[in-house]
Design a protein around this nucleic acid. Sequence first.
DNA 1: CGTTGTTGTAATGTATCTGTAACCGAAATC
DNA 2: GATTTCGGTTACAGATACATTACAACAACG
Lengths: 195, 195
Amino acid sequence: MKKIVLIEDDADLFALLKYNLEKEGFVIAGSQTGRGAIDLCRRERPDLIILDIMLPDSDGLDICKGVRNHSDLAHVPIIFLTARVSETDRILGLELGANDYIVKPFFVRELVARIKNQFRTQTVPARTIRSGALELDRASCRVLLGGQEVSLTATEFRLLEFLMSRPGVVYSREQLLDAVWGHDRAVTDRTVDVY
Amino acid sequence: MKKIVLIEDDADLFALLKYNLEKEGFVIAGSQTGRGAIDLCRRERPDLIILDIMLPDSDGLDICKGVRNHSDLAHVPIIFLTARVSETDRILGLELGANDYIVKPFFVRELVARIKNQFRTQTVPARTIRSGALELDRASCRVLLGGQEVSLTATEFRLLEFLMSRPGVVYSREQLLDAVWGHDRAVTDRTVDVY
DNA sequence: CGTTGTTGTAATGTATCTGTAACCGAAATC
DNA sequence: GATTTCGGTTACAGATACATTACAACAACG
């Protein structure tokens, strides 16, 4: 199930979108203010973000930048809602990293089509990751060391997958807990040491 | 070996794609102009066509139409390259017959994945799948174990078919429910365990 | 050189997960 | 209308994965 964070200050539009997107089977977390939007995304780990550009308390583009600066969120597709065609140039400015936009007023059906399109166009992660004699197969959830299968538990596998997919990158215990154990964990950081 | 015709006017991108696709084992014939693209395809009889939408001398969509009007080429899958998300609507316009598209800039890996996906979805699924002593016949919906027929219920068969057609791949209960039971299921995930 | 804080590892208790049998309702079949 | 079959749920027991803790080794610091 794909999770979407929706940032839109207009209460009516917010409700309309939430209702329709949930009917489509998406899980919606949302906020009607820009303040705290990034924290919301960090907590919710959405698969996609829908962002109104004009917010009373902040600029959607700033939120976009903030999201992109977060290593965990940098890859999450963002679709902008904008009231003016004239803004679209700003939106698609390369380094901002918007993936798509839609101009108000729009048909919900079209937004849904664009959302699905984002999910479809996302890059497929490689099936196997290699590092020296170590080989990890995402599809079969198996790990080979020098051709020999290594038996791992689910958590061990997830941790190894996370690390191997970001070779050479150093993470704190906190970050590893967030990434592998999830945000709603109730786990000491010493657990990471053990694993 | 699959042959691909590549129509892309940007010389750098053309060379990059040609290099990478050949490394993937595809045979590449190509042109950096739209003029004569259809004749090229008629000569080369490719298994797939990659087509830039914006060409200096012609519109990729016209080439697409031309290809589709040729009985020999009508069935060849076409993947579009486009610079703008906003063009995707035009591309997917039904009667044009594009099979897929990818928005620039893209990862070569993703294009390769889409190409393979085209080839994969084209192939007719085998009538029987085998795994060790187990043999599943899609047409007759029968399963043999060591030549001996095994009596399965419909749901059991669908589940086994799903798993056997993707040997070695691990799925969560959630995924299996989606695949075998359908999205509008009203079923506990423990049901998967039982099956 | 002693103290303090940090990290690796094995042991441990527990909570969760998983396999299986029994059960139940609905639909199909006789 | 009775019976069978199928699909789904539930209960229970056994397995094991998980988080924690304790302890030892080590590093850091004064």
